[in-house]
Amino acid sequence: MKILLLVVGKTDSKLMAQATDEYIRRLSHYVSFEIEVIPDVRIGSKTSPEQQKEMEGREILARLRPSDSVVLLDERGKEHSSMEFASYLQKKMLAGIHRLVFIVGGPYGFSSAIYNAAAERVSLSRMTFSHQMIRLFFTEQIYRAMTILNHEPYHHE
């Protein structure tokens, strides 16, 4: 199974990017994992949040395949403990999913088309974090899940 984290907007924090890259490097021992960045949508001063979500939604949909299992990282999604998230990923792997795509939307969230394209929603927290931080937190949680599934000592209960 390949895991793709699809994100809207680049990161300008070198520190966050370096830390995220370290977890991506560690993940290469367990699973195929990639982050794909959709460039920020160019907006004018008269572009409404709804219009921006629609434009971002079109960019996201253009990168999805019909066979993808799509999960939104959304504050209203299901929260998991690290152990539960590891189990969740294991079930996805055993289900024979070829590409599991997690999506981080833009600053205003997702368009209705993206909500309709997603099978599920997962929340990392009820709190709101910057998109830069979400990349790091999510990548670390994927790594943590892989170490849990492989009975390695990274995670302690």
Rank of each mutant, 00 (worst) to 15 (best):
R42E: 14
K78T: 12
L73V: 04
G77D: 01
R99D: 13
P66F: 10
G106F: 01
V31S: 04
V122F: 12
L64A: 07
I38D: 05
P66H: 09
A95T: 07
A145D: 03
K46H: 14
K78M: 08
G44V: 01
E140A: 00
F138M: 10
A119G: 08
P107T: 15
E34F: 10
F129R: 01
E34G: 12
R144E: 11
E75K: 06
T147F: 09
S45N: 13
Q52R: 15
D40H: 13
S67K: 14
H98M: 09
A118W: 01
L72I: 03
T139R: 00
M127F: 14
E54N: 11
G96Y: 04
V101N: 00
S130R: 13
S48T: 15
I97W: 10
I60M: 02
F138W: 09
L136K: 08
R99C: 15
Y108L: 08
I134W: 03
T139A: 05
S69Y: 13
M133R: 10
S130W: 07
E120G: 06
G96N: 11
E84N: 08
S48N: 10
Q52W: 07
R135S: 07
Q52H: 14
S111G: 06
H98C: 09
M93Y: 11
E84L: 05
P49C: 08
R99I: 12
N116C: 06
L94T: 15
Q90M: 11
M93Q: 13
S123R: 01
K53N: 02
Y143Q: 05
I97Q: 08
T47I: 09
